[in-house]
Design a protein around this nucleic acid. Structure first.
Length: 818
DNA sequence: GGCTCCCGGGG
DNA sequence: GTGTACGGGAGCC
């Protein structure tokens, strides 16, 4: 007797049962219960394109590879008519007994004489399921089948059929944020093997809690005392089990909190079996550690913010305080964590503020997650991949999986990922990027800014650029080639390519939403706005994707053609602006800055209208705005276009600065201090001269040896054992000296050093702080390699040069002279 | 100029 | 897991 249930899928895993792969689809039912849906109606497969198809199917079907305990074999084959980059091919769809058999079988047959190529053999089974079964995470689905009994934390439903029911979306998944504080003496590297977790906080809807294992007097109701660190870990499990979140979120929890908890749990021999199937939290360490839990989506909100929306933020660092300040206008509590170990050991009565701090971090994390969720949800729906994966993907991956999801509709077989050699080859190929009109540095008045709305996506779509439409035989003599100075490529006039179709769809969907959005308010606005943002993010990434060496659909010719058209159109705007009497200040990739030079804002607006009459397809020049004043510096070219460096003041008086870096932690305090102070003076007080004078005074202090030693100490962490270093940096040389003295120094130790005066190379002048007397530091080094680089870019943007900052040097000399 | 190393986030 | 992983700056040679 088949039953029907409605649910929102969140993620999936698969497991092998009775020699067959079963998809475990985790989600929440329409009436709010967590559930696991089993679907065994999906078989693993990959594609083979044969040179000669006469006998290959029989040969394949006989194929069987015996391993120690398992056999990999082909279960059946189908001959299918597919396309590969627009060309018709006859392919063989090879089904195997298990997902794991795919790479095994493929490895055997890829060398066969009659095999031309093999494809789609490296697609994770679960992703294949989402694509092929048209299951989109977070969207309402219906399953037919029956509930069964199975060891599980949630109800298990065995489905005969799963299908999408509507476009209803799980907009309010249950989110639980958490954060830990650990015992970590200042100046020592964080060490999960040695140091315990002290407290753990949670924040969810109507729920807040801090667990801590030392007692003190407090009136705060959310603080709960436990006896030991192992109790904290038990509470971690218990809270998740009780709260039943869809999403467990942390800030850098892939890299810190969860690995730390796992290490400590192992020490106490506690199983973190919080998966719906009682499986343990899984740590996957590679380049970047990732942590997953079966059934619960682990969202590392830091990762999403840094990778996906980082570039759109003003802040250049992504620590919780900076990000929360900008996105939420909320800050971390101002407590000194360096004091925590001592207070923990000797002064428990003062632990309360750390508990509040701990809770606040969870609160900020929760708020960030909730704020980002609409965008994440929309990306998930567009790309068709679960939150967990979208969370960890960069732009090229998002584009690639978006195309992978759509490819079957065009009957296209995916190209393979490039191999190592191929990647090396591709890396060598560079190409001409965007056009940059270098500004004359200085202060200007009455600036108007124009930019092309989504320049590269609209070029891609308007000129039908894609690997399957390039250099077609049918348009060889008729099509207009991209205006590239070095090579000639044209794109089909008769047949639309599938990448332009996808892009056009993204752009027009976004335009429609932007139209609707004008009338919408409240909640609906948030989701629509998130959707248009996501569509834009994705569309903008296609160009970079085509030129990305790791891409399946890599085509440097397409990328080159796009930038060629980009240069063509921006030149067109510049030429016309000059002809009409505007003064061109600056132009970079898709934007043009002009001064009115006596003309009106209205003249500028009609200028854009005239341009737009001549543009093809979806291309459009927008009037971005008017600025009473601004300062420009020359832009530096990156591999994929130019980086913007300018500062503008809007009519409302807000300062817009683009493009400078902040210092890293292996810099001296003096450099950090100066940068922080300068930013503060400029951004808060708008007093450039004052900032400059401040830097000059610091330079002067350095020169006159008035800066205390603690401010010139540089901290660098040894990444590996000292013997493993091929190149000896200053910190390695200092570490060597420490070892010679019998200190135990190894990977993870933090080396402190001061660069002293002399003519030798830096590492030979780097000494331990205790070896150095006050004032023995090399003033020139700290001025030129620390302080100046930390502030130079800031002053450049505001029209000052390095020499201006150093001017005091001359004056000092003069003073000395008199 | 090429090679090598470090950082980020977290405490 | 049918799978891979970054990118920029500084110092040394």
């Amino acid at each position: 007797m088949a039953e029907k249930i409605q649910f929102f899928p969140l993620d999936a895993t698969y497991r092998v049962q009775d020699g067959k792969a079963v998809i475990n689809l985790y989600g929440r039912t329409a009436d709010g219960k967590q559930i696991c849906i089993l679907d065994s109606n999906f078989e693993p497969y990959f594609y083979v394109i044969p040179k000669d198809s006469s006998s290959i199917s029989e040969k394949l079907e006989k194929l069987r590879v015996e391993n120690e305990n398992e056999a990999a074999f082909v279960t059946k084959t189908e001959t299918v008519a597919k396309k590969f980059l627009g060309k018709e091919v006859s392919a063989i769809k090879v089904y195997t007994n298990l997902p794991g058999s795919v790479p095994v079988i493929r490895e055997v047959i890829k060398g066969w004489e009659i095999v031309d190529s093999t494809h789609e053999f490296d697609i994770p089974f679960v992703r294949r399921y989402f694509i092929d079964k048209n299951v989109t995470p977070l969207v309402l689905h219906q399953a037919e089948g029956e509930f069964i009994t199975q060891k599980s934390r949630v109800a298990v439903f065995k489905a005969d059929k799963v299908e999408q029911l509507s476009t209803d979306t799980l907009h309010n998944p249950r989110v639980l944020a958490f954060d830990i504080e650990t015992y970590s003496p200042f100046d020592m590297s964080i060490d999960a093997e040695k140091n315990p977790i002290l407290m753990l906080s949670f924040y969810g809807e109507g729920f807040r809690k801090v667990f801590v294992w030392k007692r003190f007097r407090t009136d705060i109701d959310y603080i709960e005392f436990v006896e030991s660190e192992s109790d904290i870990i038990e509470k971690f499990k218990e809270t998740i089990e009780k709260y039943k979140p869809d999403i467990l979120t942390g800030y850098f929890s892939d890299g810190f909190d969860l690995p730390y908890i796992k290490t400590r749990a192992d020490k106490h021999k506690i199983k973190l079996d919080i998966g719906f199937d009682y499986s343990e939290l899984r740590v996957k360490s590679g380049r970047e550690t990732t942590i997953s839990i079966n059934g619960i989506t682990h969202l590392d909100i830091f990762k999403f913010i840094k990778k996906i929306i980082g570039n759109t933020l003003e802040t250049t660092t992504y620590d919780l305080n900076a990000v929360a300040s900008e996105l939420l206008e909320e800050k971390k509590h101002d407590v000194s964590l360096a004091e925590l170990p001592d207070i923990w050991d000797n002064n428990h009565e003062n632990l309360e503020k750390f508990c509040e701090y701990n809770l606040n971090d969870s609160l900020l994390t929760y708020n960030l997650a909730v704020k980002m969720l609409p965008t994440i949800i929309e990306l998930v729906k567009i790309v068709g991949i679960p939150i967990y994966d979208v969370n960890r993907m960069g732009f090229s991956q998002l584009v690639e999986w978006f195309i992978m999801k759509q490819a079957p509709q065009f009957n296209e077989i995916a190209p393979n990922k490039p191999h190592y050699n191929e990647v090396q080859q591709r890396r060598l190929h560079t190409y001409q990027g965007a056009f940059v009109y270098e500004p004359r540095p200085g202060l200007y008045k009455d600036i108007v800014v124009f930019d092309f709305r989504s320049l590269y996506p609209t070029i891609l779509s308007s000129h039908n650029i894609g690997p399957d439409t390039m250099d077609c035989a049918c348009c060889r003599d008729t099509a207009k080639a991209a205006p590239d100075e070095n090579e000639r490529h044209w794109f089909c006039d008769k047949r639309k390519g599938f990448i332009p179709i996808l892009i056009e769809d993204l752009i027009t969907r976004r335009m429609r939403i932007k139209e609707i959005i004008k009338e919408e308010q409240d909640e609906k606005f948030i989701f629509l706005d998130a959707r248009q943002t996501s569509l834009k993010l994705l569309a903008n990434s296609f160009y970079g994707y085509l030129g990305f060496f790791g891409a399946r659909w890599y085509s440097i010719e397409c990328a080159r053609s796009i930038t060629a058209w980009g240069r063509f159109y921006i030149h067109k705007v510049i030429d016309k602006a000059k002809k009409e009497g505007f003064i061109v200040l600056y132009s970079d990739t898709d934007s043009v800055f002009l001064t009115l030079d006596g003309k009106s804002k209205k003249d500028a607006e009609s200028f854009a209208e005239e341009i737009n009459l001549e543009l093809p397809g979806l291309m459009e020049l927008e009037y971005e705005g008017f600025y009473p004043a601004g300062i420009f510096v020359s832009a530096k070219m990156g591999p994929f276009g130019a980086k913007k460096k300018y500062a503008l003041i809007s009519e409302q008086g807000t300062l817009k600065i683009k493009g400078f870096e902040t210092v890293r932690r292996n810099w001296s305090l003096i450099a950090k201090d100066v940068q922080e102070k300068v930013l503060d003076i400029i951004l808060r007080e708008h007093a450039t001269e004052k900032a400059l004078e401040y830097v000059k005074s610091v330079v002067n202090d350095l020169r006159n040896k008035r800066v205390p030693m603690e401010k010139v100490v540089i901290h660098t962490q040894l990444q590996k054992d000292i013997l493993d270093y091929a190149a000896k940096g200053p910190h390695v040389a200092v570490a060597q000296r420490l070892i010679n003295r019998g200190k135990s120094i190894g990977a993870g130790s933090i080396i402190k050093y001061v660069v002293t005066q002399g003519n030798d190379i830096i590492r030979n002048r780097s000494k331990l702080p205790e070896e150095v007397k006050e004032g023995e530091y090399d003033a020139d080094y700290y001025i030129n390699n620390q302080v100046i680089p930390a502030v130079e870019r800031i002053f450049n943007v505001l029209g000052y040069k390095k020499e201006d900052i150093l001017e005091m040097k001359e004056q000092t000399k003069l003073e000395g002279f008199f």
